Simulated assay, not measured.
Amino acid sequence: MWLNEEQLIDSRIVAYRESLLNSCPHHIVIDNLLDEDRLDDVIKVLQQPHDWQTQKHTYSALYVDDAQWENTTAEQRFVQRDVWQRATASSNNTSADIAQNLLSFLRGDEFMSLLSRIFNVTITDMNVEDPDINSNYFRLGATDFVELHADDSPGREICMLLYLNKEWHNNAGGQLTFIGENNQPMSIAPLYNRCVLFDPSSKGSEHWVEKLNAEYTDEYRYNVTSWYWSE
């Protein structure tokens, strides 16, 4: 059982829905959504140093290689971060199964049914060509960045971030920051077992991640990111 049932009673679902509709951008923050003992086991898997690969995006092209990256100006680079390598992790570490299981759960019927209830839209992978690439673990180090961008691809209804940072320092940086209403930025700290759900097509949903404080050069900011579509 991954979900914390206390967070799923009908009255809370109603409250999530009301909060979603009355916020700009349309978003909710749910703390302690998942079972922390199981998340602790996931974190142990993610701390394996050889299971990560750097991912780079520019505003003109996603998944660029080093040559393309070097030929792109700093202003055109918007993502540099590490992405978890499922195949590598599975071959190197038998305990990686629990990390894989969480990703599978996030694309399973139970979790997508919960999202459907909160957002009042039917979420499904029926028409998604490769669901697996739409849920994965990412980490940011002190030299990494996620600059201002939008996630509003056609048909994409929900973006989800789940943070896996134990004992995160208040001044470490790494906040998710939305443009917000009337360009008044709104930030959310990446606290452990905090789930952020937002409508990427809603006003003010463009966002970035605050860079990590150089004081914490030996630490990483971990999260799961998932994107979901309707029928």
Rank of each mutant, 00 (worst) to 15 (best):
M1E: 14
W2F: 13
L3K: 03
E5R: 11
I9D: 13
R12F: 11
R12P: 10
V14L: 11
A15M: 13
A15W: 03
Y16A: 05
Y16C: 06
S19H: 08
S19Y: 01
S19T: 03
N22C: 04
N22M: 03
C24P: 06
H26S: 13
I28M: 04
V29T: 13
D31V: 06
D31N: 14
N32A: 12
L39A: 02
L46R: 07
Q48E: 09
Q48V: 07
T58N: 14
T58S: 15
T58G: 15
T58M: 09
Y59G: 15
L62S: 14
L62V: 05
D65K: 12
A67S: 14
A67G: 07
A74H: 14
Q76M: 07
F78I: 10
Q80I: 02
Q80Y: 05
R81S: 11
R81W: 00
R81I: 03
D82E: 12
Q85K: 10
S91C: 13
S91N: 15
T94C: 15
T94G: 13
D97N: 12
Q100L: 13
N101T: 10
L102S: 03
L103M: 07
L103Y: 01
L106S: 11
G108M: 01
F111I: 04
M112K: 07
L114I: 04
S116Q: 05
F119T: 01
F119H: 04
F119M: 00
N120L: 11
V121C: 04
T122L: 04
I123G: 00
I123A: 02
T124M: 01
N127E: 02
P131T: 00
D132F: 01
D132Q: 11
S135Y: 01
S135M: 06
Y137P: 05
F138Q: 10
L140E: 01
T143L: 09
D144C: 02
F145W: 06
F145T: 03
V146T: 06
L148W: 09
H149W: 00
A150Y: 02
D151G: 07
S153W: 02
P154W: 00
G155N: 07
R156P: 08
L162S: 09
Y163C: 07
L164T: 00
K166A: 05
N170S: 12
A172F: 06
L176D: 08
T177E: 10
E181L: 11
N183K: 06
L191A: 06
C195Y: 00
C195R: 00
C195H: 00
C195N: 03
V196Y: 01
L197R: 01
P200T: 01
S202E: 03
S202C: 05
E206P: 14
E206L: 07
E210H: 14
K211H: 09
K211W: 03
L212I: 03
N213R: 08
A214M: 09
E215G: 08
E215Q: 14
Y222T: 03
N223V: 02
N223K: 02
V224W: 02
W227V: 15
S230H: 05
